[in-house]
Design a protein around this nucleic acid. Structure first.
Lengths: 346, 346
DNA sequence: TTGTATGCGTTATCAA
DNA sequence: TTGATAACGCATACAA
């Protein structure tokens, strides 16, 4: 049975108050007794019961973390950032994976609150916005990651997807590509529609017409990337296609298959840039040029913001936009460094 | 401020004992008062403080989960299995990612214990075995996943890697391959050396000589798979090579690059089978035939075993070996179904 | 510098 | 069927 503060008080023949004092490094205790207490703490292998402490202090030093699917490559690194930063601030992390189930999302919130967590970091469906509003009304510290609510009712950390789409597309243009396809996730998906918007902006800025027929709508899987790319390649017979910007790495993997299996080369025949910098982007051949989403950093920022909310005791309602950074690898033909010109210049 | 049992007792003009009774669905309370209490619970939006409850019940309904790296593809699905099964049993999961740091491993154990978790599921370095022994001495419920300790001092759930290596290799043999290379992770890595052993067993059983020169030692990254495969391909000039068994999918991805970029086809020119069934295996082209490690199931079994230890109050010290299952995809030439014969038969 | 007494929110024992 | 009270392990106001 684990020993308690009372045990060591009795053993050391002092009061539990004194023991509590040395436990919390209070100055008002004689050096001699401090040593005595510390010695018996060691001798009895005592370790404080944080739960009991939390009961009186009204803080648990636990933060809740709710995400829809840890196997989605956006989340593992985020989780690491959160867990490590939390630990460095003395917090533990209680973790729920909801499998996109709204009921589980609600249940997770309920459970976390009854476990007295000090704050929650989550990535929720738009649909459960009322849950967030409830938390907000109670001034309960929450930060939402990856998704921004329309009327952001809690603090939010999201990617600047418009900028990302713009940067990726502009990079293709700067390297001499003019006819640039795009495989998107569709208007329904926030990140996808934003990246599409950025793509459009870059085209317009460069004086390139936006052509509906160069856009293909995929989903969240490799297969859709394969079929969308297949359609774009079919198009290629009538009109040239220099390059393609794919909305995320998973579809890009499928696009790779479509391109390579049709006998074309990357990037000699067609360039491809993508988004997310997930592990797959490093495992494809040639390595995929993509936009890094700084997931680990996102997690760190998340707990910093959450902790700020906790100490201030009032919702910050901040909306942080994280800019992604371009990771240059080998899937885009570079005007300057590569020997022959891209197709579009021929 | 959240309401307490006392608040609703006062509001409903009953004692806290009565409230506690209806909270725990005790039979000894008049139906009328039960309804009264339940109504005011709803009215005040009361939710019980599990921490306080845990203090008196001496259980937290929390299980700890410690792994070295959630970004390693072996872990996300495992984590899901654990979190979901735990939730179905009324447990929350407190999560630590140690980044392979032994100090963090120790710290995580300490923190989890001071947070009064009821048990711990972990995947540890061999080196921290003394930590496990300490837990075991205290009869603290622990189950170790993926790694078995030599003298297994805690309950363990591991993969039957020998069998896996055997099954994978045998599958190649059964499909007409005779000259089979192997890319391993080396003797230091438990799983790797076991799979190598299984590879050897299958060869011997089929009367095929084990040839040292067909073995290459890689690491935990795609690059090593690429270079090892390159070496095996170089070998190919002097001696034929039908197929290769790669110890895990990450290296297999590199092997794919080496094979495809050298102009060879998978599986027409060379067959490849791997291990782990990680996401990458579905994203490669052609899709990779590999051994599934049933990660989700592993997680489920883990919490079931842990809970058994918790209710019995004594360490089970069981050692469960999980058999992996072959996932047939398209990277192995199949003798019966494919039109032309594999190279080795020419 | 140290100790006594009270309370955190809950369950359990016992009596009414 | 109900309620007063002690206890869980700890922190703290107050007294000594």
């Amino acid at each position: 049975m684990a020993s308690t503060i009372k045990d060591i008080a009795e053993y050391a023949k002092v009061s539990i108050t004194t023991v509590s004092r040395v436990l919390n490094n209070r100055p008002d205790v004689k050096e001699e007794t401090r040593k005595l207490v510390n010695d018996t703490i060691k001798k009895l292998g005592y370790s404080p019961n944080i739960v009991a402490r939390g009961l009186v202090l009204k803080r648990s030093n636990i933060i809740g973390f709710i995400i829809p699917d840890i196997t989605n490559p956006s989340f593992p690194e985020l989780a690491r950032g959160i867990v490590n930063k939390a630990r460095s601030h003395g917090f533990s992390v209680m973790f729920y994976d909801t499998n996109h189930d709204q009921k589980v999302e609600k249940e997770a919130i309920r459970l976390l609150r009854s476990k007295q967590v000090d704050g929650i970091i989550l990535s929720f469906n738009e649909a459960n916005k009322d849950e967030l509003e409830k938390l907000r009304e109670e001034h309960f510290p929450v930060v939402q990651i990856y998704r921004k609510s329309e009327k952001s009712c809690v603090s939010t950390i999201a990617l600047d997807n418009v900028k990302s789409g713009y940067t990726a597309t502009k990079y293709l243009i700067e390297n001499g590509h003019r006819i640039i396809g795009h495989i998107t996730t569709g208007e329904q998906v926030q990140s996808g529609s934003e990246r599409l918007k950025g793509y459009r902006m870059a085209l317009i800025e460069a004086g390139i017409a936006y052509r509906e027929e160069l856009i293909r709508v995929g989903a969240n899987d490799t297969e859709s990337g394969y079929s969308c790319m297949g359609e774009l390649l079919a198009l290629r017979k009538s009109s040239a296609l220099d390059a393609v910007f794919v909305s995320h790495d998973t579809m890009a993997a499928g696009a790779y298959d479509a391109i390579l299996s049709s006998g074309l080369r990357i990037p000699a025949d067609i360039s491809i840039i993508s988004h997310d910098n997930n592990p797959i982007s490093r495992q494809l051949f040639p390595k995929l040029t993509t936009m890094d989403t700084l997931k680990y950093r996102l997690g760190e920022i998340g707990v910093e913001l959450l902790i700020k909310e906790m100490v201030l005791g009032i919702p910050q309602n901040r909306e942080i936009l994280q800019e992604c950074v371009l990771i240059e690898r080998n899937s885009v033909w570079k005007r300057d460094t590569m020997s022959s010109a891209p197709l579009s210049d021929i």
